[in-house]
Nucleic acid binder design. Structure first.
Length: 590
RNA sequence: GGUUCCGUAGCUCAGUGGAUAGAGCAACAGCCUUCUAAGCUGUGGGUCGCGCGUUCGAAUCGCGCCGGAAUCACCA
């Protein structure tokens, strides 16, 4: 709001003072640095050409004009080419009054309909740390887009069929002896994952045996009895073999109940879940249609390809010689199905950056097939989560399991809380809830504060802290404000505006609160929760500085006390609202 | 080799055309008889990978190098 006022009057100043027109986008407005007095700073270097005066003189002339006409500034100072403007106390008090109710972002964007796909797990193993980044990003981005005023649909595409699924099915059939999750007390996704690992172990042994008998490795990998049997199983599945289908349904059901638990714990949900087994055939129709129209071509063996060499890419396979589909075929199908179902302006795919090339190709193929979904697709690419020893490899046992990680976070939160002696006065259930909230808050914040595009390092032993720039720090600030509010019940009084003079620490909090809308806009435009996270930290820190230095309830002057309470309340509401955008809960006490 | 992304303090990360480049962690020194110390204040720590260019102004934009990651599968 301040930015708009300043922009409007600064342009006017340029017109009146120098007879020059400038565009609003050219104005450079920023928060005044702490070492100078002011709330907003206008960079006047660019206008020295228009004014034909020194930066200092230009700044002073514009400052005088703004003081007189904008009606919100009370002082200014010019340092080199920087015009630092001080907002009147009365304007801030007015602002506080207008934002006294529940916090709502301004949301002045062109609303659009957005479909966002994330999570997209395979049903052959439990979720791990990589999925956690995916899930948290997808969830948070969808919440940010909603808050910014868009219509958002969250969808999940479960990869529930394929050779990898058959591997765990086969292993269970062979060595499982009818074991169920109920019998062994294990989550279904973990149990199925165990058999997937078991398959791999036996498969490797078979290969080693064949190699020892003189076969080369590549051939052995193809000839091993286990893999052949798995392939036969996949074929039987595709032909609708009843026994295989039943086994498949039973084991997938185990996995889904396991996933359900993990999703619930992570606090995420979807509007719709697609299953690849339902949609994987549709892509073939698209390919067939494209072939008929001469947009694709067929090789001698009958496989279907697209030639993207004129776009700087290669020839890409779209259908195997035996008529079965590949990854790309399926994605073509789901893209079109979804587009037809929702008619979204944008279809966002939250998928790791290892698939940048795949999405590049996907867009180009759809474009070549003259499909509308081509322009709607947006790949929200994010970096890998690396461990101190390198990348996560499921086969080498270096994955960080999602459920185990959450357990660990809760345990750490409990130990931390107990060592701080903060458990007194709350029931066991309430305490458990707090450990969950704080532990997950730490994990979510740690992951979301990093720019999605960048790879990040996760050290299981020391990465997730509870001090400093962390989730618990922000949650703590919120709890602290909540405590103030509880104690303030009934002692609030009407205040007289003219009786309040603000201190720098108070102005700092106010200007950050005022910044909230702009931050949300930026986060929505860039689909980056990191902006929200870093903003939250700044706001919480500014509030803590204020809180530590300036009395609120203990202030004897009733007008000042009320003002500081209102300021605290607004800050608390914003912290809560923005934490929610990250999927983090804001506890009332901790 | 082609393409894409990344390189900022010992470590983890902000900052993406403006002022003397910022936080946290780790280290050190202070602050709880006072509204929640998961907090606050201070000290030390930098060739923003290297070079050239554009600009009144470059960590930020362009070009070239160096280093790292991903990808270029009839796996998904």
């Amino acid at each position: 709001m301040l930015n708009e006022i300043l922009t409007h009057h600064a342009l006017e100043a340029l017109r009146v003072l120098y007879g020059q027109e400038a565009a609003g986008d050219d104005l450079q407005i920023q928060k005044t640095r702490k070492e100078f007095e002011g709330d907003l700073t206008l960079v006047v270097f660019p206008y020295t050409r228009l004014s034909r005066k020194s930066p200092e003189d230009t700044g002073r002339q514009m400052g005088d004009y703004l003081l007189e006409h904008a009606g919100v500034f009370c002082r200014y100072n010019v340092v080199k080419g920087f015009l630092n403007l001080v907002v009147q106390d009365s304007w801030w008090l007015e602002y506080l009054e207008q934002n006294g109710g529940e916090y709502r972002p301004s949301g002045d964007v062109e609303p659009s309909r957005i479909l966002i796909e994330f999570s997209s797990p395979n049903t052959n193993k439990p979720l791990h740390l990589g999925h956690i980044r995916n899930n948290l990003l997808g969830w948070s981005v969808s919440r940010i887009l909603e808050a910014a005023g868009h219509e958002v649909y969250r969808v999940n595409l479960v990869n529930d069929r394929g050779i990898h699924i058959c591997k765990s099915m086969l292993a269970w059939k062979r060595w499982g002896q009818g074991l169920t999750p109920e019998q062994c007390g294990k989550k279904g996704d973990h149990l199925v994952g165990d058999f997937y690992v078991l398959f791999d172990r036996h498969y490797k042994e078979e290969i080693a045996t064949l190699v020892a008998e003189g076969m080369n490795e590549e051939e052995a990998a193809r000839q091993a009895p286990l893999i052949q049997e798995a392939q036969a199983m996949l074929k039987a599945w595709e032909e609708g073999d009843e026994e295989v289908r039943n086994l498949w349904q039973m084991m997938n059901a185990w996995v889904y109940s396991g996933f359900e638990e993990t999703y619930k714990r992570l606090g995420i949900s979807f509007h719709k879940t697609y299953y690849e087994s339902d949609t994987y055939l549709y892509g073939k129709e698209l390919v067939g249609e494209g072939l008929k129209r001469g947009l694709l071509f067929q090789k001698e063996d009958g496989s279907v390809w697209i030639d993207l060499t004129d776009e700087g890419l290669d020839e890409k396979l779209l259908l195997r010689a035996d008529g079965t589909s590949v990854y790309m075929t399926q994605d073509l199908g789901t893209a079109e199905l979804r587009y037809a179902g929702y008619h979204p302006d944008r279809m966002v795919y939250v998928v790791g950056n290892e698939q940048n090339y795949h999405f590049d190709v996907l867009k180009k193929v759809l474009k070549r097939l003259e499909k509308n979904s081509a322009t709607a697709i947006y790949h929200l690419s994010y970096g890998m989560v690396e461990l101190p020893h390198g990348k996560m490899k499921s086969r080498e046992g270096t994955v960080v399991d999602a459920d185990a990680l959450m357990d660990e976070m809760e345990t750490t939160a409990r130990e931390m809380t107990e060592s701080l002696g903060k458990t007194a006065g709350s029931g066991a259930e309430e305490a458990q809830q707090l450990y969950r909230t704080v532990g997950l808050g730490a994990l979510k914040y740690f992951i979301l504060k990093v720019d999605p595009e960048k790879n990040m390092l996760f050290n299981p032993v020391e990465s997730v802290d509870f001090d400093g720039n962390t989730g618990p720090f922000i949650q703590y600030t919120h709890a602290r404000i909540s405590s103030l509010m509880r104690k303030a019940e009934g002692i609030r009084v009407e205040r007289k505006k003219e009786a309040v003079t603000m201190l720098p620490e108070e102005r700092e909090v106010l200007i950050l609160c005022h910044d909230a809308d702009a931050v949300l806009k930026k986060a929505a435009a860039g689909m980056s929760p990191a902006h929200i996270a870093n903003y939250l930290y700044e706001l919480a820190r500014a509030y803590n500085t204020f809180y530590q230095k300036i009395p609120v309830l203990k202030e004897e002057d009733a007008d000042l006390r009320s003002f500081r309470l209102e300021l605290s309340a607004l800050c608390g509401r914003i912290l809560k609202y923005y934490l929610d955008l990250l999927g983090i809960e804001a506890p009332e006490r901790m």
